[in-house]
Design a binder for these strands. Structure first.
Lengths: 235, 235
DNA sequence: GGCCTTATGTGCGGTATCGAACGGACTATC
DNA sequence: GATAGTCCGTTCGATACCGCACATAAGGCC
């Protein structure tokens, strides 16, 4: 066994597998460090590896018109990157960008597909995860349309905190603007508003969540909706 | 055989199946008429039937905050409704609303799952379709965020024309506002602009596409992107 | 210390869309 | 031909963003 139980258990999809299936999969995994702003997938390329984040987390980003971008999904240790392989499509659907440094387990696409054949449980779990991801895509679409920036920012901070497992996030306004599809100035304004409410504090690329409950109140309901969906389908 | 070749061929997913798989499936299907504004699925209910539109078409709609709504997908004879069954989840993810009257083939969820077991080809086709749907979800999210209403309206008209197989669409401004997540007045303004450019004409719930090429120019690139994705993955 | 890069704040005019209300025109029904 | 219902057009002020430009500040590096 290449990896300790502690490592394996820190990805929720993997830890929900029966131990023999999990061990088989882990034996084919290698541990990698995801580093901030690293691009794991470029759209339309072939998927070479799939990733199960354990510490780090990843943004799924859709480019549009060659200039703008929008984050459509967020993947931490509750999910995986490369899920479309289970649909028999090995073409990357979205850009995948590391937004939180940390560890992940990765496995080559071919090994992954082989393990998938051997484990109906793995198939079942990942299919359900894909369902959750779809719901999140739609939720994000509607959220982006209707909710004010401040609420969207609060939602993003909460989602990210869950995946970073820390109150301290390493992220700049420029990056947030990119993710949320707005101007940097818009982020400055929204972040300042949250600051004035004593919900967060920040300084040169470090954001600290000060009041999680307050932040939940300031965020739109989408945060809770996403969480509920995950729990209902995979919990 | 319950249905003629002509009927079966009019859904593109079904017509891409080998004839024996298709015939088995069709033998379990019944033909139904979809009527305008009919609700086929309500979110969080159980999926009782899946639908393969042949003439009609269906909107997938995500409600948000209990008041607003946003269309996140459009299903005509190029697709199917109820696709999430292949993920092993029988809970409806989105509202499904008939937006174009016309025929469809439907099959009970249990029969569908049984056929799915028997036909790896069916599984493969539908998984690829699900991939396309995911890409469209993300594209719609970004489109909704960045593109002006007039372009989004043009895109919607084109997508709908493809699925209605007709230049005449039966849809009111109120409905369009609901779909695109804007005020009715916004639709009136955008539609009027398209009218002034001689791209469409309309009157009391009937819209006529006058100049398809011009409409494509007025629409955002998302229309073409979606089409390309479908062709690449399923074509 | 001095310099450069990066990160954040501010100010200005512009605009797409919002919410609400009202007016007019066509259709269906009786 | 009166009445009610549906559909479309217009106007009003408000606002959440936009693009652009520039100011301030903090940290790293020589």
């Amino acid at each position: 066994m290449t990896f300790s139980q502690a490592t394996s258990i820190s990805n929720r999809l993997l830890s929900s597998l029966p131990s023999n299936d999990r061990d088989r999969l882990l034996a084919n995994c290698e541990s990698v460090e995801l580093t901030f702003s690293e691009v794991l997938y470029r759209a339309d390329e072939l998927i070479s590896h799939v990733y199960f984040p354990t510490g780090g987390f990843i943004s799924l980003v859709t480019p549009i018109d060659g200039k703008a971008n929008l984050e459509v999904g967020l993947i931490g240790n509750e999910g995986m990157l490369g899920i479309t392989l289970i649909l028999g499509v090995d073409v990357v659907p979205f850009y995948a960008l590391v937004h939180g440094s940390g560890s992940a387990l990765r496995i080559t696409a071919s090994s992954f597909l082989r393990e998938l054949e051997h484990s109906p449980t793995l198939q079942a779990v990942l299919k359900r995860y894909l369902y959750v991801l779809m719901k999140q895509l739609a939720q994000t679409a509607a959220c982006t349309r209707f909710h004010l920036l401040e609420a969207r920012l609060a939602r993003w901070l909460l989602m990210t905190q869950d995946r970073a497992h820390s109150d301290h996030l390493h992220i700049t306004h420029v990056f947030l603007a990119y993710i949320l599809g707005v101007r940097r100035v818009g982020i400055t304004k929204a972040a300042n508003s949250l600051l004035n409410k004593n919900l967060i504090s920040y300084q040169r690329g470090d954001i600290v969540i000060r009041d999680r409950i307050g932040l939940e109140a300031a965020s739109c309901g989408c945060y809770q909706v996403d969480k509920d969906t995950y729990r209902r389908i995979l919990g």
